[in-house]
Design a binder for these strands. Sequence first.
DNA 1: TCTGGGGTCCTAGGACCC
DNA 2: TCTGGGGTCCTAGGACCC
Length: 415
Amino acid sequence: MIALADCNNFYVSCERVFRPSLEKRPVIILSNNDGCAVARSNEAKQLGIPMGAPYYQVKQLCKRGGVSVFSSNYELYGDMSRRIVSVLHRFAPEMEVYSIDESFLNLDSIKDPSALSWKIRKMVGDWTGIPISIGLGPTKTLAKLANRLAKKRNAGCLMVQAEDRESLSSVEVEEVWGIGYRLGARLRKTGIFNALDLAEAPAAVVRKVGSVTLERTHRELAGLRCIGMEEIPQPKKNVCSSRSFARPVRELRDLEEAVANYAVKAACRIRREGSRARGLQVFVMTNRFRKDLPQYSNSRTMPLSEPTDDPIRILSNSRRLLRDIYRRGYAYKKAGVLLLDLEHGNQRQSHLFEEHGSGKRGRLVQAMEEVTAAYGPRAAFFAAQGIDRSWSMKRRRLTPRYTTSWRELPVVAIS
DNA sequence: TCTGGGGTCCTAGGACCC
DNA sequence: TCTGGGGTCCTAGGACCC
């Protein structure tokens, strides 16, 4: 049996742990730039705030409903996630951390998986303060489906077998893991409306509508394991660092600053993973929602003959690519840097003699990393990254990093 | 005025080769 | 009149996930 442990309204639950007064009250968490609602408490869902709604569109609704609104505090959520994973690890011989708020557990060797699920759920709740739901099924797809139903029915833990026609038929086809809005629409045209319809559809029909991915989903719904557990996270193939700007950006100078920051951030990320990039891409775009303004988007890719993780090299090449695609006269909304085709650790075959971490350049970069690790990212940075960064993102409603910053620890008063 | 960020996989089609 | 067949590699774009 496979279990999917999924945190309830994860970001909201994290905020509630440190502000219990938010319990039973409507809460939403906004995306970067305070743009969209990316997490909603049940109360906020009941008020009719849709997932992904632009904040400016639901602002009035939030005011009327007394909704507490927060910026995303990824440092807090990341740390809470690590705590939950460490609790789950005690129970599962085999486990896959699937996302910041979900993990698959292989409970094949467990005699009573249902009873164990309740135990897991209680311990995670007691030890971290985060409520979770657990779905059980013979395959990942059915565990996902069970989890969805567990949340819908407020059941805590729930098991769904492939033969459970009633449960399957109560799940819309777009709610099945791997089927989105578009595939859903195509399936509906062939008379497949819910998970049961899909499970019972002939393979030929399924294959005609979708690709091998849909075929896998189809079999998984029937109880046939096609998607395995990935215990060890696979190293990334690409890394992207990008942001929307707080305000429209027109000047090349500002774009250069932004791109320099993304380049350094992306380089830093692959260095941490011990990877090197074989390719580099820079992209820029205007605001696609502003139909009244002229639109422009472009990207430029270059191969890196010698794979690299050197932030200075990545930064200077990014700037060259940006200058190639920059066009005057547009209001840019977003830019980004991608490091492509990453090679990992022992995988490198050629370029044995490339200076790596040695020499002046290597020592400089390492020193910068040590300084920023100890004193924060503003303690040492490249001039190209800019000083005032007026374009940088908006986070007006950020809560403290309660668990990862000494200065932001919650204060407890005892009288 | 205000609309996220970071990934993966699959397929179709073009370029190129013999 | 009449324009092959079979393969690989690469990339862009679509679809999905959280």
